[in-house]
């Protein structure tokens, strides 16, 4: 295992070491100590490696991730796992605003709470939150799945496209064009798999599903140019 002291060696050295790992690298396990809320830790990885960050991070941790598993043993600042393509990001603590924003793929697991705008404009990522999420989450979400074991804040799923939202607790309010939908067997099956992947012991039957009513202007073909 490679141990990297971020305070001593600096961010640029860390990220360039991680970027330097080839597809078939033998250095598959990394540990980052003394993150101390630093920004942009383990951003832009593209190799099947596992990075354990021992503490809390600042902005944009594990952004643009491909293939790698980034496991944060603390909380993350704004924009964690932003625009992730594949791989897995696990946060043991809480996540600040816009976690998983614009993600195209991969899995983001947040074991604490996520703040506002979680999964904003998500495009295929799966996000599993063990706690609550804040307001304006999944705004303009296009594809992928958002699972919330706790409660959701105001304006959930505003201007939603095809993403699926599963919430176990209460929803403070739904955003424009977001509606509760029937939980059919295929959704239970999908949610079961997501809960296992996210390490949640919640039962899929306890969740409600929300999605787009497809009633906004852009869903009407007569408005197409």
């Amino acid at each position: 295992m490679q141990v990297f002291d971020l305070e001593a060696e600096g961010l640029r050295a860390l990220n360039s070491s991680l970027h330097g790992q080839a597809e078939n690298t033998n250095q598959t396990h990394w540990e980052v100590v003394n993150p101390k809320g630093s920004h942009a830790i383990a951003v832009g990885l593209d190799a099947p490696i596992e990075v354990n960050v021992k503490g809390s991070t600042g902005y944009y941790c594990a952004g643009m991730n491909q293939q790698a598993t980034v496991h944060v043993h603390g909380s993350v600042g704004p924009g964690a796992a932003e625009n992730m393509m594949s791989g897995m990001v696990i946060v043991e603590g809480d996540a600040s605003q816009y976690a998983g924003a614009t993600g195209h793929g991969g899995t983001l697991v947040i074991k604490g709470n996520a703040s506002s705008r979680c999964g904003i404009s998500m495009k295929g990522i799966d996000i599993i939150v063990h706690g609550n999420i804040g307001h304006m989450s999944a705004f303009m979400a296009q594809s992928g799945n958002l699972v919330v074991c706790g409660d959701a804040g105001d304006a959930l799923g505003d201007s939603l496209y095809e993403a699926r939202l599963f919430v176990r607790g209460s929803v403070k309010s739904l955003g424009a064009d977001c509606v509760e939908k029937e939980m059919r067997p295929e959704h239970i099956e999908l949610l079961s798999e997501l809960l296992i992947r996210g390490g949640c012991d919640a039962k899929p039957e306890e969740f409600k599903r929300y999605g787009s009513a497809r009633g906004l202007y852009n869903f009407n073909i007569d408005n197409a140019y």
Partner: peptide
């Protein structure tokens, strides 16, 4: 038990 602290970022509190 000793204080309440505010920071724009967690970095300020470490």
């Amino acid at each position: 038990d000793q204080y309440v602290a505010f920071g724009s970022e967690y970095r300020a509190l470490v």
